[in-house]
Design a protein around this nucleic acid. Structure first.
Lengths: 337, 337
DNA sequence: TATGGAACCGTAAACGTTTAAGTGAATAGG
DNA sequence: CCTATTCACTTAAACGTTTACGGTTCCATA
């Protein structure tokens, strides 16, 4: 690997001169600059990020922390969409992204914070994790700039998908279609789930609708089998709901399978609504009625805010930003009126 | 950030002693080791990857190069699956992964190779790219250990999904079901596409089946709209095919939409088969008849081979490995006999 | 003729590690 | 008692950068 030293000796100048020439400092003569630059190009010089970072204390590398248990990981549509746009945006600003490994099983592994420090990430984005995990909290409370997706800590900037008005819109839409017997299979305990569930309950109350306890079930995100089982339970009730809410689109498909197996039709016999608006759902019939999250903007805003926090810490404020999604009207909700 | 120097002065020993104590060298006394280690833990010491890499010439960081044009990126099911298992496997071996940015538009950007050299990646995995892109070729021909997915260069280890026998099995299966009028909407020019197309043609020949030219169409991967259009063209033919092959499952859904809009039913009026076996397809009715690629094993094998190439270059050989997939029998193929 | 100041380039320290080589003391062997 | 060996640790150089500070040279100005 050719280094500044090699260029220096070839050009008959000092290392400092080469460094300054390549970084376009003002105290290097014009023709010296071109001479050095030509030599650098000719010799195939590529700077060494590690050496650079030691002097500058900046790595231009951002850590990405997200969960990848059985159900999610990179193949999680929502997360992949956010990460994709996040990546594009930070690359524009000259940053790379590196995953913070989350294999919790290995003995003697580094904690999230240790890993981040080891790589000297300039900043970190956190998404889809168990947000009250002590290791995550430790990372959040550190001095590393952090942006979180869909979870509010007081000390970090957060980009929130619109769970509240998303769920709100969905309930309004379903109620407007004439439904009163509405069931909700919600995700397992998380701040996102809580937001949606509270909103669900509040909206029903607003509409003066009361539902039996058995209409509220819990099943993990993206767990088609769990949704399948819970849906079967709902279908066995004496007074069956006319519409079922699911935690996400994947789960919805699991539920629809249960419905089909019981010989019922969507939406004629029973309606379903999802959440997320995964890409493929737009191309499959019947089209899901669901709430599409704006993953593009979530990722882009997360990137912009994180870069701001890194590069202009004094002038950027920690804030919570809500990104509105969009209700996608599909063919899985029947109008009862 | 606390460094070796801080620990050294606190413990009253030299920096070298601290380094060797933490790396468990044999020439440090037992109680000195524990003293130093305790101090390190207590002071919250985390090594500096950059400094370490300067001495050792190893970054324990692997570069990931893949395409992300409009149709793919991280949200590409196949790639996300491969990357997910790749990531898990290399993390076990103590490696991180960093994306090689592929924003080709930025002026003055680094080439793939330059980027890889800048970060001093120990190795690189290449997938889903335009494999004859000069920049990709340059990277492949460099001295950096490389593993490619689904494309054979002579100088690199390659993990191949099973396009040949996958397509072969599919054709056999479809022909066995009694189909003779078989159309194929294949992906755009790539080595993968070529493999499948050649295999498709060869197998038809083996079965003594001749099809008109109009039965072969081209449409990009994962382009539901393109598949939709091409399917409409096929449906307008005087002698309509009884079965249509698609380049991937997404495209298949696009095709099915076209079929439904023409008032036809799958599989009663026309059969379709996909390729890839994306996760969600298993939960959607009708279930696709498709060929599921074993993304888990593709990623894991890529990781193992790359790590071997990095750590044991003398004893590991460059090779091509084929990972067999599995034909998933769904409900979109009608038996005609 | 000094003087001041650009303009241009070099010196050297520093970032945080690793490691070959060296030092000194204690121990063992004869 | 002398020498060789082992043990435990230190010295110092090196990896490839950046940057504050100095040092020349040269020219314009007083």
């Amino acid at each position: 690997m050719v280094s500044l030293k090699d260029i220096a000796s070839k050009c008959g100048v000092s290392i400092a001169t080469v460094s300054k020439a390549l970084n376009d400092h003002s105290d290097i003569g014009a023709e010296t600059k071109v001479r050095i630059r030509n030599a650098a190009k000719e010799m195939g010089y590529v700077p060494n990020a590690a050496a650079k970072s030691m002097k500058t204390n900046r790595t231009h590398n951002i850590g990405v922390l997200f969960m990848d248990d059985a159900n999610s990981g990179l193949t999680h549509d929502f997360f992949a969409g956010v990460l994709e746009s996040f990546k594009k945006e930070v690359e524009k600003e000259g940053y790379d992204i590196t995953f913070i490994s989350n294999d919790r099983s290995r003995p003697g592994r580094a904690s999230y914070l240790e890993h981040a420090r080891y790589r000297r990430f300039d900043g970190v984005i956190i998404a889809n994790v168990h947000f009250d995990d002590p290791e995550v909290v430790e990372l959040v409370k550190s001095n590393i700039p952090v942006v979180t997706i869909d979870h509010i800590y007081n000390e970090t900037t957060t980009i929130l998908s619109d769970n509240v008005s998303g769920m709100s819109d969905l309930v309004d839409f379903v109620v407007a279609a004439g439904h009163r017997k509405i069931a909700y299979i919600h995700g397992v305990e998380s701040s996102t789930t809580n937001l949606r569930l509270v909103t669900f309950n509040r909206k029903l109350e607003e509409h003066g609708i009361e539902i039996p306890e058995e209409y509220i079930k819990e099943s993990p995100y993206r767990d088609t089998h769990g949704a399948y089982e819970k849906t079967l339970e709902l279908l066995k009730l004496r007074t069956r709901p006319t519409c079922i809410f699911y935690p996400d689109d994947y789960a919805t498909y699991g539920g629809m399978r249960a419905i089909a197996e019981r010989g019922l039709k969507v939406p004629d016999d029973i309606s379903v609504v999802g959440f997320d608006g995964i890409k493929v759902a737009r191309h499959i019939r019947p089209r899901l009625t669901t709430y599409r999250q704006n993953t593009d903007e979530l990722g882009t805003l997360a990137a912009k805010n994180l870069v701001d926090l890194i590069e202009r810490p004094k002038t950027t404020l920690v804030q919570q930003i809500v990104v509105k999604g969009k209700l996608l009207e599909g063919d899985t909700l029947k109008k009862l009126n």
